[in-house]
Computed example of a mutant assay.
Amino acid sequence: MLETLYSWLHVDSFQEFVWVIIGLGGQLLFTARFLVQWIASERVGRSIVPLAFWYFSLGGGIVLFAYAVYRRDPVFILGQSMGLTIYLRNLWLIYAEKRREA
Protein backbone atom coordinates (compact mmCIF):
# COMPACT_ATOMS: atom_id res chain seq x y z
CA MET A 1 0.00 0.00 0.00
CA LEU A 2 2.78 2.44 0.96
CA GLU A 3 4.66 1.57 -2.22
CA THR A 4 1.56 2.39 -4.28
CA LEU A 5 1.24 5.77 -2.55
CA TYR A 6 4.95 6.52 -3.09
CA SER A 7 4.60 5.55 -6.74
CA TRP A 8 1.52 7.73 -7.21
CA LEU A 9 3.28 10.72 -5.58
CA HIS A 10 6.55 10.03 -7.46
CA VAL A 11 8.62 9.79 -4.28
CA ASP A 12 11.35 7.31 -3.35
CA SER A 13 11.60 7.77 0.41
CA PHE A 14 9.72 8.71 3.54
CA GLN A 15 11.59 12.04 3.63
CA GLU A 16 10.36 12.92 0.13
CA PHE A 17 6.85 11.81 1.13
CA VAL A 18 6.92 14.18 4.13
CA TRP A 19 8.04 17.06 1.90
CA VAL A 20 5.24 16.37 -0.56
CA ILE A 21 2.77 16.53 2.36
CA ILE A 22 4.37 19.83 3.47
CA GLY A 23 4.08 21.17 -0.08
CA LEU A 24 0.43 20.13 -0.25
CA GLY A 25 -0.17 21.85 3.10
CA GLY A 26 1.30 25.06 1.74
CA GLN A 27 -0.90 24.80 -1.33
CA LEU A 28 -3.96 24.31 0.88
CA LEU A 29 -3.07 27.49 2.79
CA PHE A 30 -2.78 29.29 -0.53
CA THR A 31 -6.18 27.98 -1.60
CA ALA A 32 -7.72 28.98 1.73
CA ARG A 33 -6.77 32.61 1.14
CA PHE A 34 -9.04 32.74 -1.91
CA LEU A 35 -11.90 31.15 0.00
CA VAL A 36 -11.48 33.71 2.80
CA GLN A 37 -11.48 36.56 0.27
CA TRP A 38 -14.53 35.22 -1.53
CA ILE A 39 -16.55 34.69 1.66
CA ALA A 40 -15.62 38.14 3.02
CA SER A 41 -16.62 39.79 -0.26
CA GLU A 42 -19.93 37.93 -0.42
CA ARG A 43 -20.76 39.02 3.13
CA VAL A 44 -20.41 42.74 2.32
CA GLY A 45 -21.57 42.55 -1.30
CA ARG A 46 -18.37 44.02 -2.79
CA SER A 47 -14.82 42.91 -3.45
CA ILE A 48 -12.58 43.26 -0.40
CA VAL A 49 -9.26 41.79 0.71
CA PRO A 50 -9.44 40.88 4.41
CA LEU A 51 -6.38 40.78 6.68
CA ALA A 52 -6.66 36.97 6.85
CA PHE A 53 -5.97 36.85 3.08
CA TRP A 54 -2.48 38.27 3.67
CA TYR A 55 -1.79 35.90 6.57
CA PHE A 56 -2.83 32.86 4.52
CA SER A 57 -0.72 34.20 1.64
CA LEU A 58 2.30 34.59 3.93
CA GLY A 59 1.80 31.19 5.58
CA GLY A 60 1.32 29.40 2.27
CA GLY A 61 4.24 31.30 0.73
CA ILE A 62 6.61 30.36 3.56
CA VAL A 63 5.67 26.68 3.40
CA LEU A 64 5.88 26.58 -0.41
CA PHE A 65 9.20 28.46 -0.32
CA ALA A 66 10.59 25.80 2.05
CA TYR A 67 9.27 23.09 -0.26
CA ALA A 68 10.86 24.79 -3.28
CA VAL A 69 14.21 25.02 -1.48
CA TYR A 70 13.99 21.33 -0.62
CA ARG A 71 13.25 20.55 -4.28
CA ARG A 72 16.07 22.92 -5.34
CA ASP A 73 13.79 24.49 -7.93
CA PRO A 74 15.16 27.96 -8.79
CA VAL A 75 12.02 29.02 -10.66
CA PHE A 76 9.75 28.07 -7.76
CA ILE A 77 12.18 29.63 -5.22
CA LEU A 78 12.26 32.94 -7.11
CA GLY A 79 8.49 33.00 -7.56
CA GLN A 80 7.77 32.35 -3.89
CA SER A 81 10.40 34.82 -2.65
CA MET A 82 8.83 37.61 -4.71
CA GLY A 83 5.40 36.77 -3.34
CA LEU A 84 6.67 36.71 0.25
CA THR A 85 8.08 40.21 -0.21
CA ILE A 86 4.70 41.48 -1.42
CA TYR A 87 2.73 39.76 1.38
CA LEU A 88 5.04 41.16 4.07
CA ARG A 89 4.89 44.64 2.55
CA ASN A 90 1.08 44.59 2.47
CA LEU A 91 0.93 43.52 6.11
CA TRP A 92 3.43 46.27 6.99
CA LEU A 93 1.29 48.88 5.20
CA ILE A 94 -1.88 47.67 6.93
CA TYR A 95 -0.33 47.88 10.39
CA ALA A 96 1.32 51.25 9.63
CA GLU A 97 -2.10 52.61 8.66
CA LYS A 98 -3.64 51.24 11.86
CA ARG A 99 -0.90 52.93 13.94
CA ARG A 100 -1.53 56.26 12.21
CA GLU A 101 -5.26 55.98 12.87
CA ALA A 102 -4.74 55.14 16.55
Rank of each mutant, 00 (worst) to 15 (best):
Phe56Ala: 04
Ala52Thr: 13
Val44Lys: 10
Ser47Asn: 13
Val69Arg: 04
Trp54Thr: 06
Phe56Glu: 04
Leu58Gln: 05
Leu64Thr: 08
Val49Ser: 12
Tyr70Ser: 05
Ala52His: 09
Ala52Glu: 13
Ala66Gly: 14
Tyr55Trp: 15
Phe56His: 07
Gly61Pro: 01
Val49His: 08
Arg71Tyr: 00
Ala40Asn: 10
Gly45Ser: 06
Ser41Trp: 12
Val63Pro: 01
Pro50Phe: 09
Arg46Thr: 12
Tyr55Leu: 13
Arg46Ser: 11
Ile62Leu: 15
Ser47Met: 13
Trp38Lys: 13
Ala52Ser: 15
Arg71Ala: 09
Ala66Ile: 13
Tyr55Glu: 07
Gln37Val: 05
Phe56Tyr: 15
Ser57Tyr: 05
Trp54Asp: 10
Val69Ile: 13
Ile39Phe: 08
Leu64Trp: 01
Ala68Lys: 03
Ser41Leu: 09
Phe56Leu: 14
Ala68Met: 05
Phe53Gly: 08
Leu58Lys: 05
Val63Asp: 00
Val63Leu: 08
Gly60Ala: 10
Val44Phe: 06
Arg46Lys: 15
Gly59Leu: 07
Pro50Gly: 06
Phe56Ile: 03
Leu58Trp: 06
Arg43His: 03
Arg43Gly: 00
Gly59Thr: 03
Gly61Leu: 01
Tyr70His: 12
Leu64Ser: 01
Trp54Ala: 04
Val69Asp: 01
Ser57Lys: 06
Val63Glu: 01
Val44Arg: 12
Leu51Glu: 14
Val69Thr: 05
Leu64Asn: 08
Gln37Glu: 10
Leu64Ile: 10
Tyr55Cys: 10
Gln37Gly: 05
Ser41Gln: 11
Phe65Val: 00
Ile39Glu: 06
Arg46His: 14
Tyr55His: 14
Ala66Cys: 14
Leu64Phe: 02
Phe56Trp: 12
Gly60His: 04
Val69Cys: 11
Gly61Cys: 03
Ile48Gln: 06
Gln37Ile: 08
Leu64Asp: 00
Phe65Asn: 04
Val63Ser: 02
Ser47His: 12
Tyr67Asp: 08
Trp38Met: 12
Leu64Ala: 00
Tyr70Met: 02
Tyr70Ile: 02
Pro50Ile: 07
Val69Pro: 01
Ser47Pro: 01
Ile62Ala: 06
Arg71Met: 10
Val49Ala: 12
Phe56Gln: 06
Gly45Glu: 02
Gly59Phe: 04
Ala68Asn: 04
Glu42Tyr: 07
Ile62Asn: 00
Ile39Arg: 14
Gln37Asn: 13
Trp54Leu: 12
Val44Ile: 15
Arg46Asn: 03
Val63His: 01
Gln37Ser: 12
Val63Gly: 00
Ala66Thr: 09
Glu42Val: 07
Val63Ala: 04
Phe53Leu: 07
Ala52Arg: 12
Arg43Glu: 10
Ala40Arg: 13
Ala52Gly: 12
Leu51Ser: 11
Arg71Glu: 08
Trp54Asn: 11
Ala40Gln: 12
Arg43Gln: 13
Leu58Pro: 03
Tyr55Asn: 09
Arg46Tyr: 11
Leu51His: 11
Gln37Arg: 10
Tyr55Asp: 03
Val49Phe: 13
Val63Trp: 02
Ser57Trp: 03
Ile48Asp: 09
Gly60Trp: 03
Val44Glu: 09
Phe65Ala: 08
Gly45Leu: 04
Ala52Phe: 06
Ser47Trp: 04
Ser41Ile: 09
Pro50Tyr: 09
Tyr70Cys: 04
Val63Tyr: 02
